[in-house]
């Protein structure tokens, strides 16, 4: 019984983890159909902000939940204004430019902070379930993933900003005709997506520590989740996160963590062979 609970919690944690990692990327992809190849470095930036502000005396939770999203969000807006804005409609070029940005950021952070790992200890201790100990941080991740999805859903569904965003997603030309300045919508979306990625990076920092090239370890999972999910921000992320999280956790139980990513990719390739536009390209098409 206890073991069943533990297994379920582990699977839920794996799913939540993918959801948190991919949410920011999915927001940007859902709106602009572009993958931000510097996603891993946005995570890294969020992690560094968290560790640095914590070392400067800011409470850890404020660093994670406020400072990291805020800074990375502002940075995202800056990137959008300086780079992405010039490349609308040139999808390949925006992939190349964001990849260049990714290398630039790895190099830049290495020059400033050096190629070392810095970290803080993981908070929240552990919680006993029967004979087993579960890290409290894992439970926090599950809660955060659920809240994050609920918040994005509510934002899109019930606010006027969400209405404008949905209109722009469906038909940018029509929205522009009706007086929506779509370029601002894109800027805001990129900023919001970056902020969510910053939050993910902040949550990551106590778990893994931060290093300039840490992004490489997380982009594969994030990218696979987003392209498997397809263009819907919430339904896509949730369905892909659930499917892939279960698969990767199952494979990890069976063979250890090394093959988890490879299994993810294989599952995604087979799935994309059948559903080339991701899960929400065919199923849950009308959902957010």
């Amino acid at each position: 019984m206890d073991y069943t609970v533990i297994v379920i919690l582990e699977i839920l944690r794996a799913i939540s983890w993918l959801v948190i990692l991919a949410a920011g990327l999915a927001i940007i992809f859902g709106m602009m159909k572009v993958i931000n190849f510097a996603h891993g470095e946005f995570l890294m930036l969020g992690g560094y902000i968290t560790i640095m502000s914590h070392n400067a005396g800011v409470p850890l939770w404020i660093s994670i939940a406020v400072l990291a999203p805020l800074t990375v969000g502002l940075f995202g807006i800056l990137v959008e204004r300086l780079v992405i804005r010039h490349l609308y409609g040139r999808i390949i070029d925006s992939l190349l430019a964001t990849w260049g940005l990714s290398l630039l950021m790895i190099g830049g952070v290495t020059m400033v902070f050096g190629n070392t790992v810095q970290g803080v200890s993981t908070p929240l201790g552990s919680i006993a379930i029967g004979a087993y100990q579960v890290p409290g941080y894992n439970l926090l991740l599950i809660v955060v993933a659920a809240l994050l999805m609920a918040a994005i859903w509510a934002l899109l569904r019930y606010t006027s900003a969400g209405l404008i965003a949905r209109a722009t997603m469906q038909n940018p030309d029509m929205a522009e005709t009706l007086g929506v300045r779509t370029s601002w919508v894109y800027m805001a979306t990129f900023g919001l997506g970056s902020a969510v990625t910053g939050l993910a990076g902040g949550l990551l920092a106590p778990l893994t520590g931060v290093a300039p090239s840490m992004g490489v370890n997380f982009v594969a999972q994030s990218f696979i989740t987003v392209i498997t999910g397809g263009a819907s921000m919430i339904a896509g992320t949730l369905s892909a996160g659930t499917l892939l999280g279960t698969i990767s956790q199952g494979v990890t139980f069976a063979t250890g963590p090394v093959w988890g990513d490879a299994a993810l990719l294989l599952a995604a390739l087979v799935l994309l062979r059948v559903l080339p536009q991701g899960i929400t390209g065919r199923i849950f098409r009308k959902s957010l």
């Binding site: 780079v83 190349l96 430019a97 990849w99 260049g100 940005l101 990714s102 290398l103 630039l104 950021m105 790895i106 190099g107 830049g108 290495t110 020059m111």
Partner: peptide
């Protein structure tokens, strides 16, 4: 990496 990324952009 900084140089490569800069050239690319």
């Amino acid at each position: 990496n900084f140089i490569l990324g800069g050239i690319m952009m």
